[in-house]
Nucleic acid binder design. Structure first.
Lengths: 187, 187
DNA sequence: CATATTTATTGATTTGGATCAAGTGCTCAT
DNA sequence: ATGAGCACTTGATCCAAATCAATAAATATG
């Protein structure tokens, strides 16, 4: 159950066996049914989450009621609204299960306790912040075609897991454009 | 001399008179001549800076040797490569004086001493990170016209201080496009 | 199972901004 | 002061992606 989250945190620093068992003792298990929300707009993100199994989408809704997909997450990804979590201000995002998902939760109080108990946990929240640069694909200086190629190379699971309309939104293009890119139409 | 930086940090938390004088005792004064660099690509950002007087540009150079302006800073702005500062890894940016500038410097060691001395300083580095979202205008979902309007509304000094070619680069558009937007050409 | 709705594909057209190009006016260095 | 290069503007053209439109395929719902 905890194997995958343990290997994930080991990437963030050196942890003793005691650190690890303290860590796992703080975790809560969440079963999130398809389409249910882990966080809704206006709520404060109080926890770090680890997606053990399933798939999760983070999106916002703009003034014209259009959805913009911010993150598409699959097994072994961390889930957080880093901005809301660190500032403890209301989130602008919805975090929703796309498939039925099993999620491990570490709340902010537990994280503080871990940090008090072992300096190794200090970098955890910080490192996770760096794992989530805003709009990694959308913002970039890359063309739509290059953004898709980059996603395909770095996160093939995302493409296998989510519908094309969400992937298009995540990549900052229209579904028609993504469809044409995938069909290999010449420039 | 220190008035403006003192009012700036007061916005980040409650500081006692002792906090403030300890803080100012740690500051170094830098006079940076026009076109000189505060930081060059490959160097690690070791300090927080406060632009007391003058103007500073942060930019990167891409693989095609094209410059991309990342930040345009005027009096009373903080200056930092947050990513390099927190990770202590080499910066990808150049930080250069556009006009002759007076800058106050607080290095990372002094910041750590301040944090040890008073918990109020703990949020300083963190808050500054939030002051610098990556590419606030470039990334956005806004059109070039809207990005310019947004800059004009929120940072008119930037438009008065820097040449249009840098503003265009900062806003992620070509100088010709910015010129046309400013001339009020209909869509 | 049947039908309604959503998702994906494909085609035609439009369009915003880039690119290419030329001319004007500054600035800075000699 | 003078000339060489920048910076900015303006015009013409091009192009990638958006938009509009229609259909097919997949999925959900009664």
């Amino acid at each position: 159950m905890f194997d995958s989250i343990i290997s994930s945190i080991k990437g963030f620093g050196n942890f003793t066996e005691e650190d690890i068992s303290l860590f796992t003792s703080k975790l809560q298990v969440i079963n999130l049914a398809k389409n249910n929300f882990l966080l809704e707009e206006g709520q404060v993100c109080q926890s770090l989450y680890f997606l053990y199994e399933g798939s999760v989408r983070i999106y916002m809704i703009d003034n014209e009621s259009d959805e913009h997909t911010h993150e598409l997450l699959t097994a072994n990804d961390w889930i957080i609204d880093y901005e809301s979590f660190t500032s403890q201000k209301p989130s602008g995002y919805f975090i929703q299960a796309f498939h039925e998902s099993k999620i491990l939760e570490l709340n902010v109080y537990s994280l503080h306790e871990l940090i008090k108990a072992s300096a190794s946990f200090f970098r955890l929240g910080k490192v996770l912040g760096h794992e989530f640069p805003d709009y990694p694909y959308k913002n970039s200086l890359l063309s739509p075609r290059e953004r898709y190629a980059s996603l395909l190379a770095s996160k093939p699971m995302v493409i296998q897991t989510f519908p094309m309309k969400y992937i298009a939104s995540y990549l900052g293009m229209r579904p028609e454009t993504l469809s044409r890119i995938r069909s290999g139409i010449r420039i």
